[in-house]
Design a protein around this nucleic acid. Sequence first.
DNA 1: CCTCCTGTTGTCCGG
DNA 2: ACCGGACAACAGGAG
Length: 575
Amino acid sequence: MRTGAAKSVVSAASTMSSGGGRNSPVVAMHWFRKGLRLHDNPALLSSMSAASSSRTGGKVFPVYVMDGDCYQIRRSSALRANFLVECLLDLDASLRACGSRLYVMSGDPVDVLPSLFDEFGVTHLTYEADETGEPYAVKRDEQVIAAANEAGIEIDSFCSETLHPLAEGYVAKVGGSAERVPRTMSAFQGLLSRMGNIAKPMKSPTSRDFPKQDHSSYEGEMLPPSKSTDLPWPRCPKEEVTPVWGPDDCKKLKPVARGGESKGLSQLKEGMKRPAWVASFEKPKTSCTSLKPSTLAISPYMSLGCLSPRTVWYAVSETIEHAPASVSKSKPPVSLHGQLIWRDFNNLIAHSANQQKPGSWGVMEGNPYCRQVPWSNDVKLLNAWKEGKTGYPWIDACMAQLRTEGWIHHLGRHAVACFLTRGDLWQSWEEGAAHFEAELLDADYALNGFNWLWLSCSGFFYQYFRCYSPIAFQKKNDPSGVYIRKWLPELSKLPNKFIYEPWKAPRSVLEEAGIQIGEDYPRPIVDHGPVSKENMSKMAYAYDEHKAKSEGATKAAKKGKGPPKKKRKTQMKLK
DNA sequence: CCTCCTGTTGTCCGG
DNA sequence: ACCGGACAACAGGAG
């Protein structure tokens, strides 16, 4: 069975090893991958209770393996790498405050862990299950489990990445088949309501909970990285990873958030100081104009598991209880609880896609939730988008914030994602997703894939005729262009009237603002009006193709007697 | 089979 | 300033 089944996976080999003496002390290793926290960490607690089950000499070795090929590093920008480093430093500090420490190694966990099993004399292994079926994690875990079994090590993995376990929770509830999970948020909310209570978060261990253990023999060894450049480069072929950063990129970082569980918890606590705001939170109404995040901005901590979703859930619940009765309380899907529900939904869908076709989540081909759309492949357009040189100030400003802070407001992400794909540039969402994965501090395998399908109208959202204008949308929110002036200082002297459309400004206005279009700021790379119309026709065509294909499949399955094919009301012309 | 409703976050135009 | 409907009109789910 895969790690996905993990609540507690006990190897057969470990039962045999008990012949070797149950009296010998338990040496537990907790393997951190994500879940970089002490609070609400059932796997970590389990390693500690296993160690304390031996009368004397029980040990716990908290371990992290810096793995260049894992999702967290493979495509990471310097900014995001730096966040991971901060998380590891914080984790080590918290463990040391408990009289323990973090043991950090570098390399392929499949090689590194077995050598540590020997080195420490490990008898028990615990870790947080990775349930989404992210292909690299699946392969890695299978091999590590095999090695642990070989060594007679008892294995325990726990589901604590989501509010409820994916396989044993949601999928079990719908009858055990992953393709039957809900495909809409409202249906998912229905499922969630039948799931029973969300488990209360577990407390953080203190020094009393850790076994008395002498770590001095490894003093000064296996330390956490102190800077981004300490992280290993990916081992896989360069063309798969686009490594783009070096020491120079690690200077002058301006991340929107600093890494680590401690920072995550204090960020959460800070947010919970405003009960009325928490209770009435509506995501679509938060501002993508403000220069500071108008949301809780805890997503970077969620993506690496510095914050537990269950901890956040109950923190929000308790805070709402303290809100004044006069406050009208928002509800899922737009409320703060709704955001956590979306997260579970996205994780479940990623899990389901990978159960149906391993490795299909995150790509178009073979992805059961993704329409096949014939995107173009134009490196020039793609790079203009990545670099924020599209000539549309709102788009370029968002991309500048992404590059600089590793974060954009949700609605800004919508705008740039729509622009890259179905709206304007007609480039594959896979390219956009890869770029977000590299640059977003909150890059998350399940959520990134889900949102790109959504925005490109490839899945879950289908109203392709609703298209974000790179001009009108933000003009409505921020008529004086405060956000653009911050992120594109070269445009800062333009009057409000032209801040969203500099190319329309008369020569005299441009001269006064010190801008020469095409020199200081690019000309628009596409003409949004006609191009977006044309792209809608292409979408309509792709939808028709999809429908024809799936009707064909149904017909084949039912063997003839197919329904009369429905004609599109107005036949689009591709031109 | 059908119809109708709903869907976290569009734009544009006219009243 | 705000609101409703049209726009090239989607899919999933309930009944």
